[in-house]
Amino acid sequence: MKILVCVKQVVDSESVIAIAPSGSWIAEEGLVFRMNRFDEYAVEESLVIRDTFPGSVVTALSVGPARVESTVRRAIEMGADRGVRVPLGEGGYASPMAVASLAAAHARDEGYDLILCGAMAEDDMHAQVGPLLAEMLGIPSASSAIALKTADDASAVRVEREIEGGSREILELSLPALVAVQPGINRPRYPSLSNVLRAKGQPVPEEPHAADESANGIERLARLRLPERSSRCEMLEGSSAEKAEKLLALLAAKSLI
């Protein structure tokens, strides 16, 4: 099988973030760039499927500025066979429509049987690129996949989608198809030493494509801002011991303890 896995580079948003003076993105100085966590599950799933179908090839693709090459390389370190980067912008906000159209430009003539993506990106949280890419390529797709099984003859995938209330919707997609996976579908592996060494010497070619922005309108990020602290939240002050006493007093006053 020919498998494409789409990976995005994001800043480690578990760190404390601040808005850049321009107001158009977060201040990235001093922050660490890494692979979007959701995409790590997509990479792992691609490797699991490759191992079931000998002769399969996994390609990792990222769309973005030169620095995203390190995230493609990370996918190779995890075990992807090859990587490719389609250039877009200098960082900051990128419209999912533009990203998907560039990914589609790469994928259109490659003849991938299966395309895997993370369910969403940690930074913009759009959850759009996967479903957009599938539609641009004219292949069926499913998002929020929490279980995936490829038919023995590689003609279809059986997908369990997470839906509201803890239930799952099950469907089968004929290949080629695109699946956007949820965290929890597997346990992403750590790179093995041999793959780390292999990734070191492996080029990540740059493959320029023209974004097709004519067909669909592109939205614009007017500004990024920090939310105002809700006025209803009473932040307890004082020493740890004082906070503990205040909290217990508050709970007791509401007859909660």
Binding site: S13, R220, R225
Partner: peptide
Amino acid sequence: AFGGKALMDIVPP
């Protein structure tokens, strides 16, 4: 955006 740590104001096309 950013896990709820930030808000985006988006202008539609």
